[in-house]
Every structure is written in structure tokens, then in C-alpha cells.
Computed example of a mutant assay.
Amino acid sequence: AESGWFITLFSCALVGVMVALSTRGLSFGKWVHNAGGVLLSLTFVALIALPFVALVRGTLAEYHPFTFAVPAFSLSNPELFKKSLNIYSKLALGALTGFEYVAILAGESKAPARNIGRSVLIAAPVIALMFILGTSSVLAFVRPDEVDLISPIAQVLTRGFGSMGVVANFVSLVILALIGRQVALMSIYLTANARLPMVAGWDNLLPAWFTRLHPKYKTPVNSILFVGAFALGFGLLGIVGVGMQEAFQLLDNAATIFYATAYVVLFAIPLFAAARIGLRAPLWLRVASVSGLLVSLLGIALTIVPIVEVGSKLSFALKLVAVALVFNLAGACLYYMGRRRQRAAARISP
């Protein structure tokens, strides 16, 4: 698993498959995404059921899935305090995010105004329950300081089913399903994110090259290729000179910076910009926005603090700061150049 060549070749092949799926469009991609949802559900069923099976077999002394415990925020132990606060920010920011991807694909969906709202109302409590029970299952078999951040579910399934004889043979199938689910999830991310450069191209904020559609499938093929290549390069850059856990943490934290930055803007709209467009945000929305804004800012601030052992904490922090600065400056330059193109086009048009 630590082989750089294997990871590189596998990453290239995986991104190539996802680019092909995204280019093919949702008419085919939706089946991949739906299959990923089924595989995810089956994997979580196995994960959640595992402690109960272990209790029946007597290999687990006790299990309390809904035990409530306050995180260990101890000011007398600064390292523990920072780690606890860091994990809290990641869970709070990441647990229920992602619904916006549905909205990005609304134009390619049936009855999006009705179905997207319904999907959020149905999915939110289910996701929360999956997080609670899934985390309880992990902690039933693995100590917190031993959790594999890259693949905790596979780690728990291996430990839990390892002593069950013939049943243990199914672990490989479940882990394979988990990999399939991850591929489907990455396909959704690529499919959705590839639409963003296309929209920016429509607004003349990016070159028109990004708006070109595939002649047969009518998907933004150039934008898909760009996002796929960028994701591959960014991912391979993250594993240079570091171990797998640190590489995963670098990539995850860098993604958190960009994701949380977008959320800062999103939550700021009801607080500071609603009046500009003739709207007045209700009190409940402003309260929720303040909470979301603070959590997003906290998540950004704590990305430079690793929660795993790293070779150099300073190097870890500098890499993240450099990535954030470089790409935000690049984004600002692209926006400035795009605005100039917009103004030039406005002067030319009658």
C-alpha cells in the first residue's frame, strides 16, 4: 500500500475511468452513482451490525451505541484540547455537507425543485444516524488513537470478522464494496465539479474552451478533462515525500480549506448580503448562518494542525498555507481577468 508506483498507476487509471464516466453523462453515470449508494448502504449495515454480532458471540463484552460523552477539552493538556477541537471542527463541517452537489446537477435532473428538498429532508437524519452508529461501531473495536484515518471501516470489519471463521471470508467482499462505493462517490464529485468551470466560462470568467460540449453526450468534456487532470496532479503531489496517513491528512485538510472557504461565503450571504438583493433573512436563518460561519472559520484555522503523526509539523502547516495562498491568488487573478473580458464584451455589444 506504501508503493509510490502502485499508487500513481492506480490513481491514473481510476481518474481515467471517472473522466470517461463523467463524459458519458448522467444517463449512464446515475447507475454508477446509484450502485455506489447501494454499496454504501450494505457496507454500513455490516458495520453497524458487527458489534451486535460480536455481543451474541461473546467476543465483545459490552456495547453502548448511544453513549453520550463530552469531548476531552482540557486546557491543562493543550495538545489534547487542540486535537479534540480539531476533530470536532472536521465532524461539524463535513458530516452533513455535500447536498449542494445535488443542486449543481439540478438542470440535468427531473423535477429538481421538488425532489432536491425532499432528498435533503430524508437524507439528513439518515446520515446523522449512520455517523452515530458507525462511529460507535468503530470505537467498539478500535481505540481512538489507533483508528486508521484512511479506511476506518475496512479496519473495523477486518478486526470484527477476523475471528468468525468462514464468515470472515466475506470481509473481502465488503471491503471491495467499500472501494466501489468510493469510486462512485469520486465520480459524483468529478461530475459535479466539472460543471463549475463550464458555468464560469458562460459568464466569461474563464475562457470559452471550458464551455465546449461533447458532440454526442452534450457534457462539458474540456472542463471534465481539466478537473480530472487537476485532481490527479493535486493528489499525486500530496503523496510526495510523506507517509500515507500524512498524505491523506494533507489532501483532506487542503480540501477542507477550499470547501470551508466556499461555505464562509455561503453563510455570509444571509448575514451581510441579503439586503443588497432586496431580501431579508429570517431570524432562524441568520442564527444558523452564524453557527455555520463560525464552524467554517474554525475548520479553516485548524487545518494547519495535524491530528496524525507527521514528519514535521512546520512543513505540514507551510504546505497547507502555501496551497491556500497560491490557489486563492490564482482564483483571484482568473476572476479579475474574467471581469475584464466581461467589460470588454459589454463595450463591444450594442
Rank of each mutant, 00 (worst) to 15 (best):
V227P: 00
V240L: 08
L225M: 08
N253C: 09
A275W: 14
G299K: 01
W284C: 09
T261P: 00
P270E: 14
L225F: 10
A247L: 04
V242R: 03
V264M: 06
L294W: 10
F272L: 15
L302F: 13
F234A: 07
I269W: 00
E246C: 08
I224Q: 01
F267N: 09
F226W: 09
F258W: 05
L294S: 14
V240E: 12
V287F: 05
W284M: 12
L232E: 08
A274E: 07
G292P: 03
N253K: 13
Y263F: 10
L271S: 14
G233S: 05
V290N: 14
L266Y: 05
L225R: 10
A273C: 12
S296K: 06
I300T: 09
A262T: 11
A247H: 04
V221G: 03
I304R: 15
A273E: 07
G292L: 04
I224N: 02
S289W: 08
Y217V: 04
T303S: 10
A231P: 00
S291T: 15
E246V: 03
F258V: 12
M244R: 09
S291A: 15
L298K: 07
T303H: 13
D252V: 02
G228M: 08
G233P: 06
V265K: 01
L225K: 03
G238Y: 02
A273N: 05
G292Q: 06
G292K: 00
E246K: 02
